[in-house]
């Protein structure tokens, strides 16, 4: 009986270690949170390219799109898809503006709780405030180059869409390298940020729209 218990304990231990290949749980979560928040507070702006991969697991299919991303404190985001289609989304506080071809749409996140949560998630990821987001249970893992922040949604509305969200953070500057949104059925959307420029000047016009 003692042997069985021992084997079970070893197996559970190994499974916990193997949860994310190449990562181990962050030893001191509080100091990581503090360092992450402090470093993120120094980030005033981010300009970056992005690649989005939508993986449809059962179809063995990957839909890849590319574009440009801008963020400026406190909560200005511009996400511009450029290939293979053009689609623009600007988040300005509680307002979301979408331009798709000739069609334009303005939404106030105040009128849509889900939009509000997605809006907060986007800003939290780039602003380093994900640990204080009550919509998720958050754990952190690390290796030599990166931190992996696991976010399990607990808020109604988000659980329908995601089983978890993994945010990979570069150790060197605590900026977000990628966001992986994993759906209940196993499909996922991975957004990788490339050629990041931190704290460059970004004109107001980037976040403006007619």
């Amino acid at each position: 009986m003692r042997n069985i218990l021992l084997i079970l304990c070893v197996m559970v231990g190994l499974m916990a270690q193997a949860q994310y290949k190449g990562y181990k749980p962050v030893a001191d979560i509080n100091s990581f949170k503090a360092a992450f928040t402090a470093a993120s507070q120094k980030i005033q702006s981010i300009k970056s390219d992005f690649v989005q991969e939508k993986n449809l697991s059962l179809l063995s299919e990957k839909i890849v799109s590319r574009g440009k991303f801008w963020f400026r404190k406190e909560n200005l985001v511009r996400m511009e898809y450029q290939h293979p289609f053009r689609y623009l989304m600007i988040i300005n506080g509680n307002n979301v503006y979408v331009k798709d071809g000739q069609k334009e749409n303005k939404v106030s996140t105040k009128s849509n709780k889900l939009f509000q949560k997605v809006n907060r998630l986007t800003v939290d990821c780039v602003q380093g405030t994900i640990f204080s987001n009550p919509d998720f249970k958050v754990k952190a893992f690390e290796n030599g180059q990166q931190y992996l922040v696991e976010m399990i949604p607990v808020a109604k509305g988000l659980t329908e869409f995601f089983s978890k969200i993994l945010v990979t953070v570069d150790r060197k500057d605590y900026s977000v390298a990628n966001i992986n949104m994993i759906e209940q059925g196993g499909d996922n959307t991975l957004i990788s940020f490339q050629q990041k420029e931190i704290n460059v000047s970004i004109a107001d016009a980037v976040f403006a729209h007619q």
């Binding site: 179809l59 996400m79 949104m181």
Partner: peptide
């Protein structure tokens, strides 16, 4: 034939 509709940002509507 599979027909999958999602938003540009990757949120799935139907499969």
């Amino acid at each position: 034939t599979r027909v999958v509709f999602s938003t540009e940002t990757g949120v799935k509507f139907f499969d």
